[in-house]
Design a protein around this nucleic acid. Structure first.
Length: 802
RNA sequence: GCGGGUGUGGCGGAACAGGUAGACGCAAGGGACUUAAAAUCCCUCGCCCUCACAGGCGUGCCGGUUCGAGUCCGGCCACCCGCACCA
């Protein structure tokens, strides 16, 4: 009888051995087959890890450990996405430098991760706040600037009055700041922008060549929001001017009975003199400006607007004079900021027309436009549309577009919902933007040799109410000389958003200490693309899209060898609190991994997190369930007591062994960790049932369990006197032929209902099986036999008429 | 509204490619061991009827295909997530 299972001592013991032996260091041998497994690097918050973190980390740790045993050179790195607001806010509140806060948090996270026994290559740790790292973040920015993809723009931004920072559209949720929940409002400010829209099509097309879950691809496509249609010019009556609109339904042009401009449309000022009801118009504009985007959307139900009296347009198809309205249901930021309204075939226009009594003219037959807008494009025939009459919608689109082009009235056009990325933050704890403003030379990029541009020490990290960065107060730093002419110049004082550093970190892991480039071409060529990238669904439209954009750009620059960064992406489900609600401090349902590891051990926690349920689905925490996994490992621990000599598998377990190797091998590849572990539990139950285990069986079992529970398996391996360590061994192989029993139990049905079973040799002839089945049924089989169904290895079914 | 997903015991969840629904685990009940408790071990565990055997019902609902449907097809319902006056 060996000692009791004590995870505390054995886990520490093996973690020390792995560290000392550099057990999981990535090989520099580029001739070996490679495998790059990546998990999203964490933001080192003050709270430390919660039980949600280990789920994806363990999942890919299993893959990484298995791949090493299969002979791959594995890169499984870890790092820190350490710039960001919470650290800065904590620093402000407690008067500590954010760098110190970050160091402490990173230290805490590192201890926690090491305590869980992950096989990360800690030699390749990266930290986005390290100047040696953000050197290259700045470098990429400069490259974008030189390529014309980074530009400064005076524009309304999403301003969070609490964080005192401008936000990207992606960071605004329900009109509120994603971080603090404060309602945002629009504020005019000069901002750095990245032209992600230039890559909209590439980002869309790239999705076809990668292995992402459908829901991830769908949200990216939806976010990019490509729509095809046409731009059409409507002449303004009694002017030389035209009002341009974008429409996806040029086929309905004959039904355009009025037009609507956004309240921000420049024509309102341009034609102010003509507008007879200018006061009412201005009042409406002011009202609209006061509303946040959120309020605009919330009040969407009721259409409001004002007609521009004195300014009308001509429908190019009908030649009829039609009124122009302004309404906040038309957005200045999409299309041309103006629309042609076709109330019969657009539900928003229909509602507006009903409110203001505007004419509704049906041009696609098939619905009842008095009741509701008919928006179907699949069925329906053109009517009231001159030369389009009788055509189907799709044909009409082509015909009218050709006609518009011929007459010089319009052109085909593609629009995207995707907007350029607001890249400035008026904050301290971020990468300085390496740009200088010179009166003579204008906006000047810092020469690459001057990188990294270090974040200067400041007295206060407080953001300013006027919207300028804390760096603006550092006059010593701000005032500099122009790299171009040597004259006086000022530095850009905004910093980059947190998304910058995380947009390329996976590249740095391949060559983390390189001082002359972001990573050597040899390393990139060998390691890219990332073979498997797991992360949260919440990063699907932000991080994942941004990093793909940077990667496509770097590919165009010749800096990386692949178009797409990630070959395969998976998303883990959240771990919810025991109450089934999302874990949060305010709900008080947060579970701390430190206490769990202390009470049950890292191997138990790892096993439970993988056993908790389907990996891609959310799962509620259960400490009872964790205890069950600890119980399983206790049973594993005691297998040693039943150990018998024998290198092979005992006859009664041979099939089960081969089946289990097959099942576990497959399940660990396909995110089905829960059933893989279930198979290992079932195998242990078998060992207990037969009350013995051969050395050969024990070896195989330990190796299969090793990626999940690495500490206990190494300890048992050593205790059993096996040579070397588990992590030196090859992954067990199975013989397909031996995964099937020689004698199988067949189900027997009568008229499709289960009526019994029969044991027959696997290779038995049909006649023999049917005879055996009949005998097994006995007098349960009565009536006229109509049909006998025998599917070898599956089922026997007798169809009878009673 | 658009897009994606999910519905199976008291619970988390299994079920290859249409072939014995409920693997594995949790909880619960019973028993053994113990002065006792914990731990451990053994048994039971979808619902109804039955002492038991046998039987009937059962994978959100209705219908279809099939010898046979949790799985395929058609039509619904409910819930969750993402996006949303994007023209």
């Amino acid at each position: 009888m060996m000692q009791a299972y004590n995870p505390k001592t054995i886990e520490k013991k093996w973690q020390d051995i792995w560290e000392k032996e550099k057990a999981f260091a990535t090989s520099q041998d580029f001739t070996k087959p490679k495998y790059y497994a990546l998990i999203e690097f964490p933001y080192p918050s003050g709270q430390g890890l919660h039980v949600g973190h280990p789920r994806p980390y363990t999942a890919l740790d299993i893959v990484a450990r298995k791949r090493r045993m299969e002979g791959y050179n594995v890169l499984y790195p870890m790092g820190w996405d350490a710039f960001g607001l919470p650290t800065e806010n904590y620093a402000i509140k407690n008067h500590i430098h954010p760098r110190i806060v970050t160091e402490n948090n990173v230290k805490h996270f590192t201890e926690q991760l090491k305590m869980l026994g992950y096989s990360f290559d800690w030699e390749r740790e990266v930290n986005t706040t390290d100047p040696a790292y953000y050197h290259w973040t700045q470098w990429i920015f400069l490259r974008m600037f030189k390529a014309g993809l980074a530009y400064k723009s005076q524009m309304p931004i999403n301003w969070c009055p609490s964080c005192k920072v401008g936000l990207a559209n992606e960071e605004v949720v329900d009109g509120c700041c994603e971080r603090c929940g404060t309602p945002i409002y629009r504020k005019q400010q000069t901002q750095w922008m990245l032209k992600i829209t230039e890559y909209a099509d590439k980002l869309l097309e790239g999705l076809d060549q990668v292995d992402y879950p459908e829901r991830v691809k769908a949200s990216q496509r939806n976010w990019i929001g490509r729509s095809t249609g046409a731009e059409v010019d409507f002449a303004l009556k009694d002017t030389e001017d035209k009002l341009r609109v974008f429409t996806t339904r040029p086929d309905t042009l004959f039904g355009a009975t009025y037009m609507v401009m956004s309240p921000e449309h420049p024509y309102i000022a341009k034609y102010a003199e003509r507008i007879q009801n200018l006061e009412a118009v201005k009042a409406y504009q002011e009202e609209a400006a006061k509303k946040s985007d959120f309020e605009r959307a919330e009040l969407a139900k009721d259409k409001t607007g004002v007609e521009l009296k004195g300014l009308t347009a001509l429908n190019p198809a009908t030649g009829k004079e039609i009124p122009i309205w302004i309404s906040d249901y038309v957005l200045m930021s999409y299309g041309t900021g103006a629309i042609m309204a076709v109330p019969a075939h657009d539900s928003r226009d229909w509602e507006f027309a009903k409110v203001f009594g505007l004419p509704i003219v049906e041009v696609v037959a098939g619905g009842n436009v008095e009741e509701e807008a008919f928006t179907d494009v699949q069925s329906g025939t053109m009517v009231n549309s001159g030369f389009l009459n009788g055509l189907e919608v799709e044909e009409a689109k082509k015909a009218i577009t050709a006609w518009l082009q011929e007459k010089g009235l319009g052109t085909p056009k593609v629009n995207f919902k995707l907007r350029d990325w607001v890249f400035s933050r008026q904050r301290y704890w971020g990468e300085p933007i390496p740009i200088v403003f010179c009166e003579k030379c204008g906006t000047v990029p810092l020469p690459e040799e001057q990188l990294p541009l270090l974040l200067p020490e400041v007295d206060s990290y407080e953001p300013t109410d006027d919207g300028s960065s804390p760096l603006a107060k550092m006059t010593d730093w701000v005032n500099t000389t122009c790299p171009c002419c040597g004259g006086p110049a000022r530095r850009e004082t905004d910093t980059m958003p947190q998304w910058a550093g995380s947009s390329w970190y996976y590249l740095r892991y391949t060559d983390p200490k390189n001082e002359s480039c972001l990573a050597s071409p040899e390393a990139l060529k060998y390691w890219l693309p990332v073979d498997w990238y797991n992360g949260g669904m919440e990063h699907t439209t932000l991080h994942l899209l941004y990093s793909r954009f940077w990667h496509h750009f770097l590919y165009d620059q010749g800096s990386v060898p692949t178009e797409e960064p990630y070959r395969k992406r998976t998303s883990h489900g959240l771990i919810l609190g025991e109450d089934g609600e999302k874990m949060s401090k305010s709900r008080g349902n947060v579970v701390n991994p430190d206490e769990l590891v202390d009470a049950y051990g890292a191997d138990s926690l790892r096993t439970y997190e993988m056993f908790i349920g389907a990996f891609e689905q959310h799962a509620a925490w259960s400490t009872e369930g964790l205890k069950g996994c600890r119980r399983f490992l206790e049973r594993v621990w005691k297998l040693g007591d039943m150990l018998q000599d024998g290198e092979g598998y005992s006859p009664e377990l041979e099939t089960k062994m081969h089946q289990t190797i097959k099942k576990v091998s497959n399940d660990f590849e396909t995110l089905k960790y829960n059933t893989g572990i279930a198979a290992l539990m079932a195998l242990v139950n078998e060992f207990y049932r037969v009350k013995h285990i051969t050395k050969g069986e024990f070896r195989t079992f330990l190796l299969l369990l090793n990626p999940v529970a690495p500490h206990i398996t190494e300890e048992l391996w050593e205790n059993a006197g096996f040579a070397g360590h588990c992590y030196h061994q090859s992954w067990p192989v199975y013989d397909e032929a031996k995964t099937v029993e020689d004698v199988i139990e067949l189900a027997i049905q009568v008229n499709g209902k289960m009526r019994g079973t029969v044991k027959v040799p696997r290779e038995a002839e049909k006649e023999a099986v049917l005879a055996a089945a009949k005998e097994a049924l006995g007098d349960k089989l009565s009536g006229t036999l109509l049909k006998e169904v025998y599917v070898p290895g599956r089922i026997v079914n007798f169809v009878v008429k009673p």
